[in-house]
């Protein structure tokens, strides 16, 4: 089982490589990828340097061009695919049928990975992408139980990669318009969820309010820890009850407890979420998961899972972790 780590910047890439990632994934500094945040991602020069450094240490580099271009901006996505091919990345991560079509025809030697943003949750969908675009790997949305992951992996024509740690999307990726509905900007079209440009913090008589484009996503009393206002993690009213986390609490996904089950399920790679996080986060998470995956693959028993969980908890959103949909009861 391979470890794939986020590289939102050159320092993060270096940390991931040093801490033992088998591969890192990156993106250009624009809306062509799903982590389009100010100050994040790579210029052409940084990327060239990052790829050279990673390759020198035996680490592969994937590049995400995984948002959905529209007619007016199509050429920017074509250009991004061309640049990825020229840079010699080890794989292009894409979601849009048009982008996959272009990449597979124009650059047949460039390996394609199906992005989680393509919402492919079953073997029949993966077979479609494989048949038409010769994808070599697919990243599964965070909505499947371990048993379902095993089913998909067994029937899939390509190896599957799953999320092992990081922010938890509770909706099928690529089919979530919550941010779009509130702000007009979605992961699909713009590459960001609750974009910082639309977030406002305001202290009022009722507490600290977090608004996204005017929509009140949460309100914190004194002493409460305020989290980033992702819509699915907000507190809302339902049936007149006191505000609560109607969709999900602020929590992170963590799978160190079930890595052996994921390996058994036939998972080829574990992905860490967090290109928008700091280089220190990348180092900490990569180190722990490297250790945990190595122990799991070597079949070592008595793994210090508690210690790993503690080290991961210190960098988790909301300082809580969950198995999410991997655990059937989550649903």
């Amino acid at each position: 089982m391979e470890l794939v780590c986020p590289a939102g910047s050159l320092p993060a890439l270096r940390n991931a490589v040093a801490a033992g990632a088998d591969a890192v994934y990156t993106g250009f500094r624009d809306a062509t990828n799903a982590r389009h945040f100010a100050g994040l991602n790579f210029t052409q020069n940084d990327l060239e340097r990052g790829i050279a450094e990673a390759h020198a240490r035996g680490c592969r580099v994937f590049l995400a061009v995984n948002t959905y271009p529209q007619p007016g901006s199509w050429s920017a996505w074509e250009a991004a695919v061309d640049r990825a091919a020229e840079l010699g990345v080890d794989a292009l991560i894409a979601a849009d049928v048009g982008v996959l079509d272009y990449a597979s025809r124009r650059h047949p030697a460039l390996p394609l990975h199906l992005s989680v943003q393509a919402s492919a949750t079953n073997a029949e969908a993966l077979a479609f992408y494989h048949r038409h675009f010769n994808i070599r790997r697919a990243v599964l949305p965070r909505v499947l139980s371990v048993r379902q992951v095993a089913q998909v992996a067994a029937e899939s024509p390509v190896p599957v990669e799953v999320f092992g740690f990081g922010s938890l999307c509770i909706m099928v990726e690529g089919r979530c318009l919550l941010s779009s509905y509130a702000t007009g900007r979605s992961p699909n079209t713009y590459g960001a969820c609750s974009p910082a440009s639309h977030v406002r913090w305001q202290v009022t008589g009722d507490g600290l309010e977090a608004r996204v484009n005017g929509v009140l996503v949460d309100r914190y009393g004194s002493g409460e820890r305020a989290g980033y206002p992702t819509i699915c993690k907000g507190r809302f009213q339902l049936d007149g009850a006191a505000p609560w986390h109607v969709l999900e609490e602020p929590t992170s996904l963590s799978t160190v407890d079930i890595l052996p089950e994921l390996a058994e399920a036939g998972v080829a790679a574990i992905k860490v979420e967090g290109r928008q996080r700091s280089p220190a986060y990348v180092r900490q998470v990569t180190e722990v998961l490297r250790e945990a995956i190595d122990a799991c693959m070597a079949g070592r028993t008595g793994a210090p899972r508690k210690e790993w969980q503690e080290r991961l908890r210190s960098v988790s959103e909301g300082a809580q972790v969950t198995l999410g949909a991997y655990h059937r009861q989550w649903g």
Binding site: V143, V172, C176, L177, S180, D239, V246, G331
Partner: peptide
């Protein structure tokens, strides 16, 4: 239609799991 999940939010509102 804005989003789909493995979780049933109506069941969650009733303090039940999807199963």
């Amino acid at each position: 239609p804005l989003a789909w999940s493995a979780r049933c939010f109506t069941a969650r509102a009733e303090n039940r799991s999807r199963d």
